[in-house]
């Protein structure tokens, strides 16, 4: 019985550890995609956010300032993507790919300039995103371990779910959310109703970069304590997959991120157990499950009709 409680506790713990960076980035991706701008540069925006967050937190000692700056750095690259694609109608996939090359390059060059190394200096525990309730739950019995593993987690994990509710509200309960979604479906109709499509899309791409930056900062300021060139490897693309999985809805993307996180947790639990299964097979679990669920249970995804199409103002 204790074993079962422990195992379930660890799976939930691992899920909550993997999810926040993915979910922040996935929510960012949602904003951009529903307004009609394909943002494949999420990965790059996460990388620059991861670097900036860790750097600012190191120099100021203030984790939240670092976290916000991580978001702003992502936003700067979002703006770049927005100017290229929304303002000048450049191909969105190419611009996003360029950002995926550019952002890690900028991060590493800057790291070399500041730290004389491609890694940042490890953060002091006080400059890291704090763990909540670490004193409330102590280890001991199986149940107290369970509670500790689940609830004594980084503040960013709690934050991401709060932000998710906010994002859901903005999407479906505000005028901006409606306009934003309309811009992704039929921009011409929007324009005829007096909505500034380009401005709306520009705002969405910037929010997208901001969120991706926060996701990156979670990775270097909570899960680990420094930026390395390998800090962000593929999380951005998994986030984009989660968005498609969730049919371009933030709550759906959350399910996608949680599923991926849970499978990764399962991988760890099976790996540390005495079950004799090849590590290569275990490592496949998250990806195989994602593919199977996509095929079997997720019906046809509704892609925003004008997604990926540059909008040129009608005269």
């Amino acid at each position: 019985m204790d074993n079962v409680i422990n195992t379930v506790g660890i799976i939930i713990y691992a899920t909550l550890l993997y999810t926040p960076p993915l979910l922040f980035a996935a929510m960012g991706s949602c904003f951009s995609e529903v307004s009609g701008v394909v943002n494949i540069g999420i990965e790059g925006m996460m990388t620059i956010g991861a670097f900036t967050g860790a750097t600012v937190a190191h120099f100021t000692g203030n984790p939240w300032l670092g976290f916000i700056c991580g978001g702003l750095a992502g936003m700067a690259f979002g703006l770049l993507h927005g100017v290229a694609t929304v303002q000048f109608g450049a191909d969105q996939t190419i611009s996003g790919t360029a950002i995926n090359f550019l952002a890690p390059g900028v991060a590493i060059v800057t790291a070399k300039a500041i730290f004389n190394s491609s890694d940042t200096i490890p953060l002091e525990p006080t400059s890291k995103i704090p763990t909540l309730f670490s004193d409330v739950f102590t280890s001991g019995t199986a149940w107290s371990n369970f509670m500790k593993n689940i609830f004594s987690t980084y503040a960013s994990t709690y934050l991401v779910f709060v932000v998710l509710i906010l994002v859901w509200f903005v999407f479906y309960k505000t005028r901006f959310g409606l306009r934003m979604r309309a811009c992704g479906e039929h921009p011409l109709a929007c324009q005829s109703l007096g909505i500034d499509v380009q401005r709306t899309r520009m705002i969405c791409v910037c929010i997208s970069g901001f969120m991706a930056g926060l996701g990156g900062a979670c990775m270097t300021m909570a899960t680990t304590n420094q930026f390395r060139p390998t800090s962000i490897v593929g999380q951005g693309f998994i986030a984009i997959a989660a968005v498609i999985f969730g049919k371009f809805r933030p709550q759906g993307a959350m399910l996608g991120c949680l599923l991926f996180g849970m499978c990764s947790g399962l991988r760890v639990v099976i790996g540390t157990s005495s079950l004799n299964i090849s590590a290569q097979l275990i490592s496949m679990i998250p990806y195989v499950v994602t593919v199977i669920v996509l095929i079997l249970f997720v019906g046809k995804s509704h892609v925003p009709a004008a997604n990926g199409k540059p909008f040129v103002k009608a005269k």
């Binding site: 713990y13 550890l17 990764s264 790996g271 590590a279 490592s283």
Partner: peptide, 21 residues
């Protein structure tokens, strides 16, 4: 635990917490 990766700190962290538990 065999992480089967040199670049997965999240997995390393989760496995370690499992061991500590």
């Amino acid at each position: 635990f065999n992480a089967n990766s040199f670049g997965d700190p999240t997995g390393g962290s989760a496995a370690t917490t499992d061991m500590i538990t």
